[in-house]
Design a protein around this nucleic acid. Structure first.
Lengths: 250, 250
DNA sequence: CGCCAGTTTGATATAGGTCAAGTGACGTGG
DNA sequence: CCACGTCACTTGACCTATATCAAACTGGCG
């Protein structure tokens, strides 16, 4: 099931694929994008199962799957294309844990000096980045809720819903690699389950018809999964805060 | 054990108590503090077990204990004095979940307009706030690690170590209220355990001499707890990132 | 006095972990 | 081209940490 292909998907979209997630915040304008495109992005291509240090600049995952894991081996977050690899360049704190590629990955990065200039000249970009930082933190909380309140079956279903949603948003839902590249043991490290139990859980999902493999495709019955996991994607989108300045200045 | 006293501790320190945590970042200068002190802080006093909306401005917990909980009832974070109640004013996203007081609380807040002005005029303040945001996110990850890898006993010990550390940093370690105000059921909601099991776990800690009540004091054998939980406070302090600009600009 | 929230205790159930063994695909070196 | 090693996946047997349920106990408070 693994190693179906190691080539990376190509990118024919008019707005570079890579900025697609940042645009979902609704905070960036066309000009922000053109300003970003003008920067000297460097492309790094990493083989599967290698580690990556995002450094002090801005790094965006452009293709492939990555995970961030804690020192104890627990997986903390999963990165799909469009996701910033770390927010260290904003917070100034070293990112906790370590980034590792799951599949071959393409990463686009710019140095700290350029980020600084970009962010200072384009308010929308900063706002979008901050908003995404909050979103990624919310995703972490959702994982925490999964771990403490959901059963293995619900957790796994929830994970699949989330991954599907995030890929869909990036226009990548058709690519089965994103679903098949994680080892069952790795999935377990993310969901807080043993590899053996992940296996049995996936079987149960298959038995229920929520999940199937046709050839080298993966077929999800997303509606069934959503129902099973009570999946609510709100946390992946966020709610903007209206700045009710009057409230205090009255 | 509860309701020992509902009066709030007083604050005789030269630098206002409330800014103490922000100062731990090492990013703020004396001038930053005086600038903050000049602002029109409003004080809100909330009774125990009430909910609080931090709004779009900056709110700092000045005295008492609060928790933030998700929609499902899971507790996501615990706030002690000095902690910002939310970072919504930075990210622009509505804070996930809901803030509730555990004890009577005193909260200091300023409106969005003032925060904006402060943050634009004093770089150090913004840097400190961003750094703390990353730290709070790291604390969330540590809780996640607790839930997925530590036993009930270790988790509970770890929690006590963390709380002790954070209180110590604020000079509040002497106040037993911060340890006794959480119900066992609430502790369970935070640690992902049932109330019954929390009870048995606390008994086990007492049996081992890690924890004791002398009168209305709570005595922790912090060293024993640290050993039990392999507590490493690094995540509460963070590591600053040196901006290696040369790395990309060479 | 009696209520109520919190705590404690005991009995029982179960989700998920651990250990061990076996299968199948793939890649490598002889 | 085959033998072998490795790594993921699968299956079965067993175990245990923790949940759940139910009941009693406690201390403060109206």
């Amino acid at each position: 099931m693994r190693h179906l292909s190691s080539s990376l998907p190509s990118d024919p979209s008019p707005v570079p694929h890579i900025f697609r997630r940042l645009l979902t915040s609704g905070l960036m304008e066309a000009e922000d994008v053109t300003a970003m495109m003008r920067l000297g992005w460097r492309t790094a291509t990493l083989p599967a199962r290698s580690s990556f240090d995002p450094g002090a600049g801005l790094a965006l995952l452009d293709a492939g799957l990555m995970i961030r894991r804690g020192d104890t081996g627990q997986y903390l977050s999963l990165l799909v294309p469009g996701d910033p690899c770390s927010y260290a360049f904003i917070t100034g704190n070293a990112p906790p844990g370590e980034l590792r590629t799951v599949t071959d990955c393409r990463i686009m990065q710019i140095g700290p000096a350029e980020v600084l200039e970009l962010v200072e000249s384009r308010q929308g970009v900063l706002a979008a980045l901050l908003s995404h930082m909050a979103l990624d933190s919310a995703a972490l909380e959702e994982l925490l809720v999964s771990l403490s309140t959901r059963s293995a079956l619900e957790r796994t279903a929830h994970f699949l819903c989330e991954l599907d949603f995030r890929l869909q948003r990036m226009g990548l839902a058709g690519d089965p690699r994103y679903f098949t590249s994680l080892t069952q043991a790795e999935l377990g490290r993310y969901l807080g389950l043993s590899a053996v139990h992940v296996n049995r859980t996936l079987q149960e999902l298959r038995r229920r018809g929520c999940l199937d493999r046709r050839g080298d495709h993966v077929v999800l019955d997303v509606d069934a999964l959503k129902a099973l996991a009570s999946f609510e994607p709100g946390y992946l989108i966020g709610r903007r805060l209206e700045a009710r300045a009057h409230r205090y200045d009255a």
